[in-house]
């Protein structure tokens, strides 16, 4: 299990054999915190023992660097333009995003639609569950004690901190991701975007609008509340 089984030829100049963890790739910043030294120690030990290779770590980082909110924005823009796709997306998120080439393995991707009556906002009070496989790593605030604690109890105050002020006639529905589903908000399509193409629409779909802390941008590209 020490050899690379990716099947990519350019991986074959490998770092897989024991005691080869050099040259050390320089960190952008020298480690100074205890945990940074621990990260290095564990990584070196795992490489020395053949549990992982340095190349596998680098490839995994690269793979995850490719997961960005723009992927979700593409999904949302497609749903705004194509009612049949939207229907499939709301029925089975995993299958529908696969149509656009996005994998979402292991967990159930549930897309929930914001409407004029219901505004959904996602949180994970118990840890930090997030549709990472599509949007990439969550923002720091999503993982914070403040966001995780307060959103289920004072959603209107939290939304206001994000500049999102909704009428009392709208039901704010806080979705606590407590189990095996990962939620993606399908924000409302902004008025004044008739005739826009997918690429153009996708630019209005922010990460926060897919978490539900914000609305999609206005046609002028501004935040709306």
């Amino acid at each position: 299990m020490t050899h690379d089984d990716h099947g990519d030829e350019h991986h074959d100049h490998d770092h897989g054999h024991p005691h080869d963890h050099g040259p050390f790739q320089p960190d952008l910043k020298e480690p100074s915190e205890d945990w940074e030294f621990l990260e290095i120690a564990l990584r070196e030990l795992l490489i020395d023992k053949g549990v992982i290779t340095a190349r596998e770590v680098e490839d995994k980082i690269e793979e995850w660097d490719g997961k960005v909110p723009e992927n979700g924005a593409k999904v949302v823009a497609r749903a705004w333009l194509d009612p049949a796709f939207k229907k499939r997306l709301l029925a089975d998120g995993n299958k529908a995003v696969a149509e656009l080439g996005f994998e979402f393995p292991g967990l159930k991707l549930v897309v929930i639609e914001n409407t004029s009556k219901v505004h959904n906002v996602i949180v994970c009070t118990l840890c930090s569950c997030y549709p990472r496989a599509l949007l990439g790593l969550p923002p720091l605030w999503y993982k914070s004690r403040e966001y995780r604690s307060r959103t289920v109890r004072e959603p209107r105050a939290v939304l206001r901190e994000f500049g999102t002020d909704l009428a009392d006639s709208v039901e704010v529905r806080v979705v606590d991701s407590t189990a095996d589903c990962r939620f993606l908000v399908l924000p409302r399509r902004p008025d004044g975007t008739d005739g826009w193409n997918e690429e153009h629409l996708a630019k209005l779909v922010t990460r926060d609008s897919m978490i539900g802390t914000a609305l999609a941008l206005t046609p002028q590209g501004e935040r709306s509340s």
Binding site: V152, R153, E154, P155, D168, S169, V172, D176, C181
Partner: peptide, 20 residues
């Protein structure tokens, strides 16, 4: 029903969780 008035929400607001 969860907070009995002790929170910042509007009357019709709700919270969902996924429960086994």
């Amino acid at each position: 029903g969860v907070w009995a008035g002790n929170g910042t929400y509007a009357k019709r607001d709700t919270v969902t969780a996924d429960l086994y």
